[in-house]
Design a protein around this nucleic acid. Structure first.
Lengths: 175, 175
DNA sequence: ACTCATTTATTTATCAATAAATAAAGTTAT
DNA sequence: ATAACTTTATTTATTGATAAATAAATGAGT
């Protein structure tokens, strides 16, 4: 990899990172490609050198976030009776280390672009299935219910963070 | 000429209703004032005769939805041990009778307009406080936890509806 | 009953701003 | 010199919002 390519690669990473922060706090529509470019320190059209559209950029950010989350969950190895709790702890760690990505993930289901909807639907479906599978293998009772509850805790944690109302989810109070 | 029944219903009400449907399915940004006008059958600038901005229209829709929900909850009178379950049932009824308003309510926390954020924060805070109060008065153990769980069930129900993934919340499968 | 005046309802025309996307040119490193 | 990197300039489309005009209804005085 030549130095130029390294720079380009890092630019792409920088764009993904800045985009994650902006999309998480401003949402898809209020975040402009110019904002992303400015945050990185490049010009707006240059963003299109790496991503063929704003939507593709958004999807790339989401995919990265999803992969990170799934990795974190499925590297956990805890006894069945502590599995749910331990995975919850892992999510809280992610919420500290990659707050933007996680908040974005949990809000992404409200972005009404059809391509985004399909993508998010697929990912949530996949995540749910793997959670159930995990609980089943661990012999936990009511695996489907456990999986649903796990996701819903992520949702209300995000709600609490976004609205800055820690009382709504005191158990993941980070400040 | 005798007044057409459709026109007889207040235009403002019609606008609020169409806006609720559009905002719920398309979100704040993708819903244009022209879409709302078209759905009602009036011209786009006429919407501004009733609401001084698109944001005010959105807030008006939210307020109406929120008031309806709080009313439904607080006209319930059930024995303490069935309070949470009964209010859940009431929410499911609302989800059938006023689906758009309820889905909108549960997604509104992701709209990044500052005025919307403040409004939604206030309303969620108020709703949570009144839920806790209700559970406390009924002598239910862990009233805060109960209130949080109640809201989080609404969230995952909405997620399931929006993504059309009933398996995520089978207990409120409506189709 | 009929006109005139006033309010209410709604439209046409248009502005000003924003933002995504393209193309072409310039820069830098090897 | 060439290929990768990055910018400038521009286009095209959309949309929230305003102003002014038109039409329909209401009501008072005659």
């Amino acid at each position: 990899m030549s130095p130029n390519e390294e720079i380009a690669a890092s630019r792409k990473e920088q764009i993904l990172q800045s985009a994650a922060a902006l999309f998480a706090s401003q949402g898809f529509y209020k975040t402009t490609t110019a904002h992303v470019a400015e945050a990185v320190g490049v010009t707006q059209p240059y963003v299109f050198h790496f991503f063929k559209s704003k939507e593709q950029l958004y999807l790339a950010v989401l995919e990265k976030a999803f992969d990170r989350m799934m990795n974190q969950f499925f590297t956990v190895n805890a006894p069945p009776d502590q599995l749910s709790t331990e995975m919850g702890r892992q999510f809280e760690l992610l919420l500290q280390s990659h707050r933007n990505e996680m908040l974005l993930l949990m809000q992404s289901f409200t972005t009404p672009e059809p391509a985004v909807r399909n993508f998010v639907k697929e990912k949530y479906s996949f995540a749910y299935d793997r959670l159930v599978e995990r609980f089943v293998k661990a012999g936990v009772p009511n695996p489907q219910w456990q999986a649903s509850m796990f996701i819903s805790l992520g949702l209300i944690g995000t709600l609490a963070e976004v609205l800055e109302l820690p009382k709504l989810a005191p158990w993941c109070d980070s400040e």
